[in-house]
Design a protein around this nucleic acid. Structure first.
Lengths: 343, 343
DNA sequence: GTATGCTACGTTAGCGCCATCATGCAGTGC
DNA sequence: GCACTGCATGATGGCGCTAACGTAGCATAC
């Protein structure tokens, strides 16, 4: 008796509640809410109305378990503060937008053990596909990817052997091409500046390609500087000051990304150096954010958005079986900006 | 007969497989893998070994359904390319790191309908909590938050009425304080530059607070400029050129964020304007990225990381019932940098 | 009239796991 | 000897949903 006026017992709603409220079976409610199967328009309306009135939100956990289908795509990347990865995410998002699929992000902080942990966690939700940055994984992680039985797309990098599909650019080649362009422009006393890259394999490959490209032209790095922690203008400024003080006759500085490059550029300009005559400079990534600096830094585009889009497409195609394992290597373009002599 | 040599049928593994491989019941395996309940060390080892050998990955979908517990926290934010939000995420991540909880991100693109959709989608996974940016939601979204029965923390902004908990800063007050500081420094011909902010409520509140602050000092905005789309150095440069050409006697420019502010600053310096004597400038956010520009822009810190951390803490505390609904308003500090006259 | 096909539902049997309770079995106290 | 305690493990039921199949009811065909 008393419970008539009790506050609505806050049990969470189920299909049964909607089914009772609308006078049809749970199955029919399920069909209506998923837009599946034959249900008359009259019933559909009745059910939808009841669901709305109750404030019913389906339980995807139960749905996924019953149907063995999950509309999630795991995206595993090293960092969100790198600017590169949010842009890749943008591409993935854009591509998945029109589909049922939803990206779910995991962050590894460039740590292999953490990657392994995050991957395990992600797989335990049985996603429909995995997009994961890089080709270097622990043995256990690689095994998980292989055994997962779902589409795997490794992104960013194509220098290596993918588990399944792969889309990215060759960072080794990007480094080599920059070296060639620098030599072609007549620079000879060349310095390098980048992260301590034990775990950033792509930065390492660019560096290796760069050194190799110089070597082919008979030139060795004149000086170098490695740093730890995030990239920012301040860091580039600081390191550039250090390297220029130490080796004043450098005529080119290659930075492993645009942001520290821009910092270096600002410093060099403050010091009144003739850019690109006396000193040339180049970065990597082609970030848009920096369009607007007084001088445009030479760079190589890393095709971030396109990689994201392509990766999402590959996951979908692989899921419906319309694609064999393949590697797509995009071709980034070198933009000499205003900080390299033109030949 | 023939199937002895068939390739291992790639059914996905279940507890039962591990249980058979290790000779104990499913229940015991479950206990071992979750580190729960009394299981002898000998059995533990046996089970773990079997699970590892098989490459078993638990099915959280089934686990969540059975236990009615999900270790996910939904984080709903407008954008990932705004730099502000990745930093908030950083704070959330840092705080959740040591717990079982995992953030899952949804992006709304500043669109109320999309927010509603994303929220519905998120709730259908029955997360343990929700962190959502802003206090303005559609009626339906607000109802969902209220009915969800889980902790809700609205972040970034405290000017309004939260559904449950809330942590952020008062943007209205931030705008007002900047106005007061500008007037105190003796500037009088003041221009404003910001996004067309129909949907960016926080930018709008800063603007309103700013105008209000000026009004209290008997000053009106001398000129203003609104733009659409993302914020970048280039945009700030362009708009600043326009506003300075149109109203050359401006003696202060207030930008609704640091990035366009920095663009404006670079342009003003190229034009050889005396900063902060002839022209003062200020932005908003206190982004670290820009430390390293030749001149440090005046700004107000938006406490991003702290908001993230606090929000995560509140979700946890609210989940275990140790916290009543509350609003935490952080106090951002104004940094005059080098672009405001000192009084 | 029976056969046939079609639409619009309902019924049943799980999906893989975990909360809960039951159980066996050793050791302990008197 | 018997109850009692504590520990390690097993059996059972069900979380909320959906795939697959079943069927009532009506229309059409001959």
């Amino acid at each position: 008796m008393s419970d008539i006026s009790d506050p609505p017992a806050r049990r969470t709603l189920t299909l049964r509640d909607v089914s009772e409220a609308s006078g049809v079976s749970e199955m029919t409610v399920s069909r209506v809410l998923r837009n599946r199967g034959d249900v008359s328009e009259a019933t559909r309306e009745k059910v939808r109305e009841a669901a709305r009135a109750l404030g019913y939100v389906p339980n995807k956990i139960a749905g996924a378990l019953a149907s063995n289908r999950v509309n999630l795509v795991a995206v595993i990347i090293p960092s969100m503060s790198n600017m590169v990865f949010p842009e890749v995410m943008g591409g993935i998002n854009a591509q998945l937008e029109e589909t049922e699929l939803q990206p779910v992000v995991g962050i590894t902080d460039y740590l292999p053990e953490k990657e392994e942990k995050v991957l395990y966690e992600m797989l335990s939700w049985r996603p429909s596909g995995i997009i994961i940055a890089g080709l270097e994984h622990t043995d256990a992680a690689r095994a998980m990817l292989q055994n997962s039985g779902i589409p795997v797309v490794e992104i960013m990098d194509t220098d290596g052997t993918p588990v399944d599909c792969c889309v990215g650019i060759s960072h080794r080649r990007a480094g080599r091409e920059m070296a060639e362009a620098i030599l072609a422009a007549g620079y000879r006393r060349i310095g390098f500046m980048g992260t301590k890259m034990a775990l950033d394999h792509r930065a390492r490959k660019r560096y290796e390609g760069f050194v190799e490209g110089l070597a082919k032209g008979g030139v060795e790095l004149a000086d170098w500087e490695f740093y730890e922690g995030g990239s920012a203008l301040g860091k580039g400024r600081e390191l550039t000051a250090a390297i220029l003080d130490r080796t004043p006759d450098l005529d080119f500085l290659y930075f492993s990304n645009d942001l520290i490059g821009a910092g270096g550029l600002l410093l060099a300009q403050e010091r009144g150096l003739d850019i690109p005559g006396r000193l040339g400079m180049a970065g990597f990534n082609g970030v848009e954010l920096l369009q607007g600096l007084p001088t445009k830094l030479a760079t190589i585009d890393s095709c971030r958005k396109e990689i994201g889009r392509e990766a999402a497409k590959m996951v979908m195609a692989r899921a419906d079986g319309s694609l064999p394992a393949e590697t797509v290597s995009l071709t980034p373009s070198l933009d000499p900006g205003e900080t390299m002599r033109t030949v």
